[in-house]
Design a protein around this nucleic acid. Structure first.
Lengths: 224, 224
DNA sequence: GCAATGATTGAATGAGTATTCAGTCGATAG
DNA sequence: CTATCGACTGAATACTCATTCAATCATTGC
């Protein structure tokens, strides 16, 4: 499902709108509600109130609350995928640049905002039981993991760092970023986007000193 | 609150039991239900049914469902704390051994079982809004973080690895382990306890090659 | 204009759920 | 053996919330 952004140029709120507009409003409101009230406190009454729409619309545009939740998760998942794909898509980038772009995508303001992190972890918490949620997350994880591996292999081959295991590098950095996301969710004051990104780069420098190990100026201040 | 384990020797179920026994049963059942149905699907009716107790008991032993949830989170948090404290408490351990014990505690079968991981992430998902949950998690995180830092500082001082930043090491490994927990929750078939533990040790070896960098035999098979 | 179509509304419905509490039961003290 | 007291029970209560749907309204094609 593609979600059209709310049209900022439309002055008068029209009574009827394109389906994708309404669906986008409802998904946006769902994200807000999960961030504010948690997944347990998110009711359709609150979602529709935040969206400024009437209660019945959720079951009209989505079949059920469950479907609305699925589409919300799909939305943030696609947002992240689009972000890193845009990052590696630019012309003239080296493999190292592309891999850094994937890392950067994790810490892009639109991707790891407090609201989005709330949504991710709300669904992680439910994912163990809901196969639908897990499938959505797995899809996007797998796609990114494959791309990361491809890039790391290329980076390792460029130099003669053949001792390093691409699977190990990829899994480690991805797990690290997931963990930093959790820290950013729980302790937003201590774990900022920039600090976290620098931390990942520093680990990367440890793994590929020749390729990434130059500017050690980052991250020296006190933390938690 | 200290929870007494269910007495396996008691053959006849007594009608009345010590408070701590009942509280333990209810917490145990809550963990089961969160793992099975998610936090949204966990009702008091299900919890008491799983516990084999009557509906009214939750509000008798805990003031409310909310309190039951808080005590459940506190219980798994204390379990983890007890685990690592027991690990570093043994006589005659080096600082390196103690730090490895903290790592091991994350991957102890009783600590990172699928059920316990479900509980952790269920609460993480809610923690952004519920200050009580966050406070419980923060408490235990902070205590462990301080101990880790102390040990890493000692390890770095032992050798002359003064270039390494203890804060960086501690935050990185903790985030990594959180991320591995998430992977173990979402993809239990691919991310086993032993494999994850080996992965952390490998990163540790990268940071302190002299102290931890010997047996490179671990983790070479294919993953996800 | 004028239907026809489809989006929108929100009151009504009904299923489900936390909490209460009056009564039951049984262990223990005397 | 009896009385007392506190644990225990589960039906009843008082909600909340997802879902439905008949009625309303705006748009579009004619």
């Amino acid at each position: 499902m593609t979600v059209a952004p709310t049209d900022a140029t439309a002055q008068k709120p029209r009574r009827t709108e394109d389906k994708s507009v309404r669906q986008g409003q409802l998904i946006e409101a769902t994200i807000d509600c999960i961030a504010r009230y948690g997944i347990t406190g998110t009711t359709l009454a609150k979602v529709t109130e935040v969206a400024g729409l009437s209660l019945g619309l959720v079951n009209f545009h989505f079949a059920s609350k469950e479907r609305l939740f699925e589409e919300t998760l799909r939305f943030v998942a696609r947002e992240h995928r689009d972000q890193w794909q845009k990052g590696i898509g630019a012309r003239g980038l080296s493999d190292a640049d592309r891999f850094l772009a994937i890392i950067d995508s994790f810490f892009h303001p639109g991707i790891c905002s407090p609201k989005k992190l709330s949504v991710w972890f709300a669904f992680f918490g439910e994912a163990a039981n809901r196969s639908t949620y897990r499938a959505i997350v797995e899809d996007i994880d797998e796609e990114r993991h494959q791309e990361s591996m491809r890039l790391i292999r290329a980076i390792a081959a460029d130099q003669d760092d053949m001792g390093i295991d691409p699977i190990f590098v990829s899994l480690t950095l991805e797990a690290l970023m997931d963990g930093l996301w959790l820290n950013m969710l729980l302790y937003p004051a201590d774990f900022t986007r920039e600090r976290s990104k620098a931390q990942v780069r520093r680990v990367l420098a440890l793994m590929f000193p020749r390729q990434f190990g130059t500017p050690q100026t980052l991250l020296n201040g006190p933390a938690t």
